[in-house]
């Protein structure tokens, strides 16, 4: 039994508080089943490519990736670039979930092929509703290609 087989969301977030808040919100709504968190960019890649600490897994392709921009080691935009360049991974919807409202970042993100760019609101209620909307959209409404 492979516990990584049915990952719904891959959450790449370095801020543990933010991570915790997101998890809580998602769990509350029971939409997503399996959420996997990595706390830095390198780990995210390791996970996606089933290498290093994740070699013992089969290729696990999440249904959607929630990606922050500011990450240690490899930053979000770089990961996005790699994912979207990779034949096997490029089909995965990537949602930039980030605090940065900087225009250059937004531009770059879309250039690299982000499916969506969402700014994390400061106010928690808004934050929650944003997360839930995302969850609802990408996992329920949106049609992903079947592997």
């Amino acid at each position: 039994m492979n516990k990584f087989n049915s990952i719904d969301i891959l959450l790449v977030e370095d801020n543990p508080q933010d991570a915790e808040l997101i998890m809580r919100t998602l769990k509350k709504n029971h939409i997503a089943n399996e959420i996997f968190i990595v706390y830095d960019g390198e780990e995210a890649l390791d996970f996606l490519y089933s290498r290093n600490q994740y070699t013992d897994q089969n290729n696990h392709i999440p249904k959607v990736i929630f990606l922050d921009i500011k990450l240690p080691k490899v930053n979000g935009l770089e990961i996005l670039k790699i994912v979207k360049a990779d034949e096997n991974l490029r089909h995965i919807p990537v949602v930039m979930l980030t605090s940065s409202v900087e225009d250059p970042d937004i531009k770059k993100a879309y250039e690299y092929g982000a499916n969506s760019y969402v700014v994390k609101p400061v106010d928690f209620d808004s934050f929650c509703s944003t997360i839930n909307s995302l969850d609802m959209y990408w996992l329920v409404v949106n049609q992903s290609p079947k592997k």
């Binding site: 508080q17 933010d18 808040l21 500011k70 409202v101 900087e102 928690f124």
Partner: peptide, 15 residues
């Protein structure tokens, strides 16, 4: 814009 918001969010969220 970026860095200050994050803790702010945490404070708001956890509260």
């Amino acid at each position: 814009s970026h860095d200050l918001r994050a803790p702010l969010r945490a404070i708001s969220g956890f509260t």
